[in-house]
């Protein structure tokens, strides 16, 4: 059964009055029962203030990026920044803000510095069509991940000593695991984040970092983050996005056969997914 079906709303409210109109005469002016008490002036004042609530800056762009929705200029207050930089850079900035003390990537500094606060949004990179993978961050100077081995069996990020940390070529999602919890020397940010992150990173934090890792050319790190999400939130609300990102990360790590199988599973399990185009594109671009 679809867990989102409103079965709970179909249950009869034990407090509800089912007596029809005889006990509940209808106000002919607006159709509401005549005994519906009006709200007090204090309540009306509070509710008027509540109607002015707004999401935090950047939320519109961040969620749009996750849904593969291109962000248009002039979308209101929530488009204060991020539109000019594109979804990729917004994601990168979000990562940077998770890590106080860490210098932002040079490209972000340049982009922020070159933009007047009131300047109209300018696309640093052309907007992409829905479902089309966004280009890598243009000059974000990604930490180059050790080149993926052509062999799918040891393509995950090796340690500096070259000792492979990847498990045997997986056959199932669970086997995508890259078994390590050791500090990651390729990712200084990970160590710093470990200080400020809560003991249990949120779903958003893990997925945001995984997306950034994929875009900055570190698919091995992305796979570890995705696996951490898989362990912590096996049925989390972002599980669908996690599996789509897993496909992309596997393919970019050179584990194309594994990525193709993961893509087949994903498309079978989520035929109507918003991430379908991303998954198909990842596999098609790396036959």
């Amino acid at each position: 059964m679809d867990p989102l079906e409103p079965n709970s709303s179909k249950r009869q409210d034990p407090n509800a009055t089912q007596a029809p109109t005889a006990a509940n005469p209808v106000n002919t002016a607006d159709g509401s029962p005549a005994d519906l008490p009006p709200l007090s002036g204090d309540a009306l004042r509070l509710l008027a203030a509540e109607r002015s609530a707004a999401p935090p800056a950047g939320a519109y762009e961040r969620v749009a990026a996750r849904l593969e929705i291109p962000v248009r200029p002039a979308m209101g207050a929530s488009a204060r920044w991020g539109l000019a930089l594109g979804a990729v850079v917004v994601a990168g900035l979000a990562i940077w803000r998770l890590s106080p003390g860490e210098a932002p990537p040079a490209a972000l500094v340049a982009a922020e510095g070159s933009r007047a606060p009131s300047a109209p949004p300018q696309h640093a990179t052309p907007p992409t069509a829905p479902g089309v993978p966004r280009p890598e961050a243009p000059t974000a100077a990604p930490t180059p991940e050790p080149a993926a081995s052509p062999s799918p069996r040891n393509a995950a990020s090796p340690t500096p000593t070259g000792a492979p940390r990847a498990v045997e070529a997986p056959r199932t999602e669970a086997e995508v695991t890259v078994a390590t919890r050791a500090p990651d020397p390729e990712d200084g940010a990970t160590r710093r984040e470990a200080v400020v992150e809560p003991a249990r990173p949120s779903e958003t934090s893990l997925l945001t970092r995984a997306r950034a890792a994929v875009r900055s050319g570190a698919p091995g790190r992305a796979l570890r983050l995705l696996d951490e999400h898989r362990r912590g939130y096996p049925s989390g609300r972002l599980a669908e996005e996690r599996e789509a990102l897993t496909v992309v990360a596997l393919v970019r790590a050179g584990r194309t056969e594994l990525g193709r199988r993961a893509a087949q599973r994903f498309l079978a399990q989520h035929p109507g997914s918003v991430h379908r185009a991303l998954v198909e594109s990842a596999v098609q671009q790396n036959p």
Partner: peptide
């Protein structure tokens, strides 16, 4: 997917609780 009368009853109860809370 709920009957109108049920929803009006819920609204009535909700308003009373909300007023009491504020």
């Amino acid at each position: 997917s709920a009957p109108l009368n049920t929803l009006y009853s819920r609204l009535r109860l909700a308003r009373a609780r909300f007023e009491a809370a504020i």
